[in-house]
């Protein structure tokens, strides 16, 4: 019982991190049919920014955790919008393949830049949550896992409120469904795409800052997370935000349970297992568990 709940909570915490990065991918994919391969490196880079805010004195003093956390989210937003405007916007009329290659270029650049600025060595990144546990009915529940889960899902929830209840959020959804019709109603879709990149960067920053305390900070810290996020997004159908979150949480719990109860599944096998799950799901349901099959145009 104890083991089960520990595995469940650890899985949900991991899953929430996958979910927020998966949601970032879906945000951009839904609007432009482009998979942003740089999503993981954007998350890594903004986590380094948080690290800089936490460790280097700015205006005479370093920031404490939560101010640095929120400031990082703001910087991440500006960073995401800026990347879309500077790197992606000039390729507006290019094919999807060219834009995907541009995101790969971005991946390479950000990875190199982080190693260049902060050195490729592993760095310790603090967690805002204590390492102690709560004991409820004889079961130990990790405060760190609970906190990670809570913070990540709170960010996802705020984003959901934005999309559900604000005019801008509505326009972004409309633009993703039918960009030409949205433009005919006066929506400047190109700026909404930049906004989408901004939100995706914020979600990435959250996932980066939440995974760094356990995975350590390094230029390649998000590569594995990005692959888990890909798997989550695909499980959810790539176009469904709800599916991405559900896929992320499900994958996190599944991997944690496999690691706990199936002994041949050592940590090295987490990625191969995720890949296997991805392939099997796509074989059974080619549009993902939550996706709709869309008739392809000739």
């Amino acid at each position: 019982m104890q083991q089960f709940f520990q595995a469940l909570m650890a899985g949900l915490a991991d899953g929430a991190i996958f979910a927020s990065l998966a949601l970032a991918l879906v945000l951009i994919y839904k609007a432009t049919e482009v998979i942003n391969f740089a999503q993981g490196e954007m998350a890594m880079f903004t986590t380094y920014i948080a690290y800089a805010l936490l460790t280097h004195p700015h205006f005479g003093h370093t920031l404490s955790y939560w101010p640095a956390f929120f400031m990082t989210l703001v910087i991440a937003f500006v960073f995401g919008v800026g990347l879309q405007r500077v790197v992606i916007k000039p390729l507006e009329k290019a094919s999807v393949l060219t834009v995907v290659m541009a995101t790969i270029a971005l991946l390479v650049i950000l990875n190199g830049l982080a190693a260049w600025i902060w050195s490729p060595e592993l760095k310790f990144f603090p967690s805002p949550f204590p390492t102690s546990t709560w004991v409820i009915g004889g079961v130990h529940i990790s405060k760190q896992d609970t906190g990670t889960f809570g913070v990540t899902l709170a960010c996802v929830f705020v984003l959901w409120l934005f999309f559900r209840f604000t005019k801008l959020g509505l326009a972004m959804r409309a633009g993703a469904v039918n960009p030409v019709a949205a433009r005919l109603l006066g929506v400047r879709t190109s700026w909404l795409l930049a906004l989408g990149w901004g939100f995706a960067a914020v979600l990435g920053a959250v996932s980066g800052m939440m995974s760094a305390p356990t995975n350590f900070l390094s230029p390649s810290m998000m590569q594995a997370v990005l692959i888990f996020a890909f798997a989550s997004a695909v499980l959810g159908g790539l176009e469904s935000p709800v599916g991405a979150v559900a896929g992320g949480l499900g994958l996190g719990v599944l991997l944690s349970m496999l690691g706990t109860y199936v002994h041949p599944v050592t940590p090295e096998l987490r990625l191969p297992v995720a890949l296997l799950i991805l392939l099997v799901v796509l074989l059974i349901k080619p549009a993902g568990l939550f996706g709709r099959v869309v008739v392809r145009r000739v």
Partner: peptide
Amino acid sequence: GPEGTARAGIAHVPEGRGIFAELTVWE
């Protein structure tokens, strides 16, 4: 571009109506 024309005061209901199929009527 289309958004500028819309802002100038021209509404264009395109071929196929341009409904946002996944959104509700009210949205």
